[in-house]
Simulated assay, not measured.
Amino acid sequence: MDSRIEKARVLASLGRLVAAQEMLGEVLAGEPEDVVALADMANVVLRLRDYPRAVEYSAAALRGEPENTFAWRVRALAELGMARDVELGPEAVLEHRGRATAAAERAVKIDPENTDNLRILASTKRDKDPRGALKTLETALELDPDDVGVHLLRGFILRRNLKGANNTEQAELAFREALRLDPENAEALYELALIDLERGNRTAGQEQLRRVALLDPEYGPAVRDHLDWLAAEQDRLAQAAQAAETRRLANRYTAEPQPKFILEASGKSGSGRAYRWGIGVLVLIMIRMIAAGLSDDSSTPSYTPPPVPTWVRTPPATYYNPLPFPSLPPEFRRDWPTNLPRVTVRTEPPVAPPQPQLTVPPGVNPFP
């Protein structure tokens, strides 16, 4: 085997796919029929997501070696990648899926105990027959329980192709097993982070997402999108909580009875009684003045007190003086009616009629 093929494989393992492609291109330029170089080139362009060229290179390798299971696996994955092209029509998608499954089955038929062949076959069946894909993976785990790729694919199928809480728990176990076998596996850690976020454990999910970005830079854009979404969601929830608290306080204020400030006078409180009497008198005076203002001056007779009987002792003159009208500030009298009735009040006591004089003759004692 050409040493340049070995160098290309090292470059591909380091993620330098373009450099590996150039190296393999040099090999194929000198030996276009080199099956190993063709198969490796098909794998490199597959990782570059150039699925049509991956199909071409794998087909060329299989023409030189029809029993090459590696080339069949690459062919199956390339056809599966083309089937997931959103621009293709339904018929083309079904055709590529059928070719992918046929290529994977051919690889399993050539080497049925190869876990990679079983894993690729499960990959081609997961969208249309997820339970059949799980059975294929169970066979692979019986052959190699420590295959990280098999555990990962099993977790993907349980979580994304089969819905349900129980399936999510089983998927978590599969990802944790893959992480146990490979503690720096970014795929398993990424899926576990998403599971934590779905369960509401955002702190653990954010920490794991940051770790994923450090382990595999290819996950950088996805991790950044998730972190941005989490920050925006956290702000939204904080604003919603604040608005809910504001509404709660407002509802509580309107629902609770407000205190009524009532002045209650105790029987022992003279000031309270005086205040209450004063308010009552003022209200009565205002009612009387308003009622009097509604009537006409011309129709209102003047009031003259009746004469005091002679047999009643004449009281002091001050008794007839009217009580002074309560003096109010001008702002309280500004809109009062001006046609108030005038009351005629006597200010002098009545003059008593002259009493008859008894004339006693001289020398006569009126009291015998």
Rank of each mutant, 00 (worst) to 15 (best):
E33M: 13
E33F: 13
V35D: 13
A37G: 06
A39E: 05
M41H: 00
A42T: 11
V44F: 05
V45R: 08
R47F: 07
R47Q: 13
R49M: 03
D50E: 07
R53P: 01
A54Y: 09
A54M: 09
A54P: 04
E56T: 09
A61C: 08
G64K: 11
T69C: 01
T69Q: 06
A71L: 10
A71N: 03
W72D: 00
R73I: 06
A76S: 15
L80C: 00
G81R: 06
A83V: 01
R84V: 01
V86I: 08
V86C: 07
V86T: 14
L88H: 02
E91N: 03
A92Y: 02
A92P: 09
E95N: 11
E95A: 12
H96R: 15
R97W: 11
G98N: 05
R99V: 00
T101I: 13
A102V: 04
A102T: 08
A103K: 05
E105L: 14
D111V: 14
D111N: 14
N114R: 11
N114L: 04
N114D: 15
D116G: 05
L118E: 05
A122E: 04
T124L: 04
D127C: 03
D127V: 13
D127E: 14
K128L: 02
K128Q: 13
G132W: 12
A133W: 12
A133D: 14
T136Q: 02
L137C: 05
E138V: 00
E138Q: 15
T139L: 12
E142P: 06
L143K: 14
D144S: 10
D144T: 15
D144K: 15
V148K: 02
V150P: 03
H151V: 04
L153I: 01
L158H: 03
L158D: 05
R159S: 10
K163S: 00
K163Y: 02
A165S: 09
A165V: 04
N167H: 07
T168L: 12
